[in-house]
């Protein structure tokens, strides 16, 4: 019976003892949801030797931290994590369970859906209660051309993976108080799955989703070599180079640089769009940037509709002038 389920749970994804920043974003959103239903906010922390992270979770908005530690949980693997989390959910019966739409969250959550026989919304970009008081998850479909409100009416918990970089985290507040509960779980190690090696990606392919400033080029960039110019501008501004889909399809930039529905969602303080018209698929990936600046020769480009600052001009003339002006002022 769904009436027996209450509370908002956040899966406190950690790797090598470091919490994924999306956990703080979800705790912050949970505080907003709580203002409607007054449900308790619980962060669920699985791992081995991770109990020291509980204070950080409380400082970021968790009212209770459930910790389950086990040697088989020291490195993430889908089946042991699913076993542990299923036991906790069956014990406590939360009404809502949210995961970051990270590689780990998206690996684990579908198995939880089957284990718990409940609903799971993928890649939500908003959560809330509609006019009927029903919890909904807003999610893009058809490459971001359409937004759908998904509801899970009867089964509990109501689950969703939620895109990183959508909600603002609460600043850490060490005066917050919360309960820390340690639970035991029975977990069998997975002998059929093994991480053999793990290496950082080569230099220059650092993720764009945590950069404070991005210079992003699109279909309007005529030559591969022009990206060197955009890269120079990005470096001068201590930012990173990014792109929309066409330059990646051209093979000019790796997929890691791609912003948008089929790439990465970003939320930098500043984004400079150069030669980008602003398809829905692109906007979905960057519309939460604090300051959007766009250069495009077409005054009707949709990107200007979400830009605070605009330049209608040929980037090949304007960008070198901007680079020269910055160098002049820095000298």
């Amino acid at each position: 019976m769904k009436e027996n389920y209450s509370g908002i749970w956040i899966f406190a994804e950690q790797r090598q003892g470091v919490l994924n920043p999306v956990v703080f974003e979800l705790l912050s959103k949970a505080q907003e949801l709580k203002s409607v239903t007054d449900e308790t906010i619980t962060a669920v922390l699985l791992g081995s030797g991770v109990s020291g992270l509980a204070d950080e979770l409380i400082a970021r908005g968790a009212e209770r931290v459930l910790i389950a530690e086990h040697e088989a949980l020291s490195v993430y693997s889908a089946r042991p994590y699913q076993q542990a989390l299923t036991q906790l959910v069956e014990r406590y019966k939360p009404s809502i369970l949210l995961y970051g739409a990270t590689s780990q969250g998206r690996d684990l959550a579908p198995r939880m859906m089957v284990a718990l026989q409940t609903g799971l919304t993928a890649d939500a970009i908003d959560l809330g209660y509609d006019e009927d008081g029903v919890f909904f998850q807003a999610t893009p479909a058809y490459g971001g051309k359409i937004l759908a409100h998904i509801v899970i009416l009867e089964k509990r918990p109501q689950m969703a993976t939620v895109r990183p970089q959508i909600f603002d985290p609460l600043p850490p507040d060490s005066t917050r108080r919360g309960e820390i509960v340690t639970e035991t779980v029975e977990v069998a190690g997975d002998g059929d799955y093994e991480v053999l090696a793990c290496a950082p990606k080569p230099e220059g392919t650092q993720p764009i989703d945590r950069a404070a400033l991005l210079v992003s080029g699109g279909r309007g960039i005529k030559h591969e070599t022009d990206f060197a110019m955009l890269d120079e501008l990005a470096r001068l501004l201590h930012g990173q180079l990014a792109s929309s889909r066409p330059p990646v399809d051209q093979g000019w930039l790796p997929h890691e640089k791609q912003i948008g529905q089929s790439g990465t969602t970003v939320k930098p303080a500043y984004i400079l769009n150069v030669g980008i018209s602003g398809s829905v698929q692109y906007q979905v990936g960057m519309q939460n940037a604090a300051c959007i600046i766009s250069i495009n020769h077409n005054p009707d480009a949709p990107i200007f509709g979400i830009s605070q600052y605009g330049v209608v001009a040929d980037y090949r003339k304007v960008v070198p002038a901007i680079i020269a002006e910055i160098c002049k002022r820095k000298a």
Partner: peptide
């Protein structure tokens, strides 16, 4: 199927007031 689609709609279009810079490239 525990989950269902309640409504679908097009994402809202932007209507930000854009400040434009004009003149020569310099």
């Amino acid at each position: 199927s525990p989950s269902s689609t309640k409504t679908v709609f097009e994402p809202p279009k932007g209507n930000t007031d854009t400040r434009y810079f004009e003149g020569s490239p310099a």
